[in-house]
Deep mutational scan, measured.
Amino acid sequence: MLDDRARMEAAKKEKVEQILAEFQLQEEDLKKVMRRMQKEMDRGLRLETHEEASVKMLPTYVRSTPEGSEVGDFLSLDLGGTNFRVMLVKVGEGEEGQWSVKTKHQMYSIPEDAMTGTAEMLFDYISECISDFLDKHQMKHKKLPLGFTFSFPVRHEDIDKGILLNWTKGFKASGAEGNNVVGLLRDAIKRRGDFEMDVVAMVNDTVATMISCYYEDHQCEVGMIVGTGCNACYMEEMQNVELVEGDEGRMCVNTEWGAFGDSGELDEFLLEYDRLVDESSANPGQQLYEKLIGGKYMGELVRLVLLRLVDENLLFHGEASEQLRTRGAFETRFVSQVESDTGDRKQIYNILSTLGLRPSTTDCDIVRRACESVSTRAAHMCSAGLAGVINRMRESRSEDVMRITVGVDGSVYKLHPSFKERFHASVRRLTPSCEITFIESEEGSGRGAALVSAVACKKACMLGQ
């Protein structure tokens, strides 16, 4: 009897593995994704193909990295998701002549009506938060230079001027797309009239992360975010950046690689679950690469896999709870928690219980395998993109072996128990001629924006502006 049951459990697990095998990517698959990513990057950089390229390769006008001589107080704003952060950054000489960066910050959550109302409502709310922060720190009387981390696709015309191309991540505030974001912020500050600010720089969160990590390690020339969304930036040779005049030196390019796949480059790798996630998203047909990796989508992918296993009578005796059938019910943090389970399955059992399920031991094991399959594919897909960037940098610099540091931020990278190990191992397999160091950014977005502002202020002083 026991043997029969054991055989049935083994057969069930084997069927589960057959279904989950769809998520496995072979090294040849990853090399294919990497080569296609490089081709799209090239198209994004070139003037004649930029418009139709899915990977936009947006110039950021960040050319210099901090040298350690900029000092002063800077205000930093960070808008990239449902939370908005205001930070005071003091850049100065530390002990023994070292450079020191001290920060104080406060988080504000953005109400739904500000995210989806008008641009005026959104930026009025942001300036209200700045006003509140300055009151708390008794700094209303000071006109501070301000660095703005704005983590949406922007076409820069200068370091302090950028046109919002399109909202992502659930934002829909009308009247912002096609307009200068810094102008919208300046107008809102003017409307309030109770404080003055000098907006000197606007950067993407990947750029802010790279600059913040450069402060720790001067070989950091790539910034990457794996959180709600997924994106990367890197220092490109100016001669390859056709959208900006000049051939000397390097400029940081914001790849906006989340949109890779929007022209069909990933079609052969998309599964039924991916198509369902895409169809029910706020932007169907867009940001397809990001939807395979980002935390906004990972939990939902797992939920759809679990429903398939229920329908195949391989999980929960073929019956799903009402909660499990509800879109968004299986949160991405559950994926991390399930994979963090120590082996007694308590954590998995508790999560499934909150979803109205009474799982068996085998159910718990199957749910864990589903989570591992989805998150491992995410790590491997992400590795193909980064390997594409790094191999490109090595080739354009004609280096036999390139040493490089990548600064990384984002909740999936930082909080998932195995993502970074799987990701690092896969990147290294795909970049055999590179020695890569990964560092995690601390308060990256805010500190990085302030350091970019410090560079901009120093330049302005040198130019006598």
Rank of each mutant, 00 (worst) to 15 (best):
E290L: 15
T118H: 13
Y234F: 08
G246M: 08
G246Y: 02
A387C: 08
V408I: 10
M197A: 02
L88I: 04
V241I: 05
R327L: 13
G147R: 05
T206N: 04
L292S: 14
L451R: 14
T405S: 02
K169L: 14
L301I: 12
E312N: 03
V244W: 00
F84Y: 03
E331Q: 09
R186I: 09
G249N: 02
K104H: 05
K13N: 05
E268Y: 05
N204D: 08
C364K: 01
S174M: 06
K346S: 08
G328N: 13
E256K: 12
G343A: 05
L122V: 08
L75Q: 00
N166Q: 10
P359S: 08
T82S: 13
G464I: 12
R155F: 14
G410H: 10
A201L: 00
T362V: 05
G410L: 12
N166Y: 07
S69R: 10
R394V: 08
C252G: 03
L304F: 10
L122Y: 14
R325P: 06
T168L: 11
T255L: 15
R345C: 06
L352I: 06
A173Q: 03
P417C: 07
I439H: 07
M8R: 13
K90H: 04
M57I: 03
A379F: 08
G246F: 09
F171Q: 12
H137P: 02
M381R: 00
V455C: 13
S426R: 06
E216A: 03
M115T: 05
M202P: 05
F133S: 04
R327M: 07
E51N: 11
E40K: 02
V367S: 04
D311H: 02
V302A: 07
M210T: 02
G410W: 09
I110N: 13
E48A: 13
D311M: 12
S441A: 06
T342M: 03
V33F: 05
G410I: 07
E435Y: 13
R308A: 04
L243G: 02
V16N: 11
P432L: 09
P111Q: 10
R397L: 09
A188N: 04
I404E: 07
E268R: 02
G92Y: 13
D262R: 10
N391E: 05
K142E: 07
L301C: 08
K172C: 06
H380E: 15
G147V: 01
I390K: 00
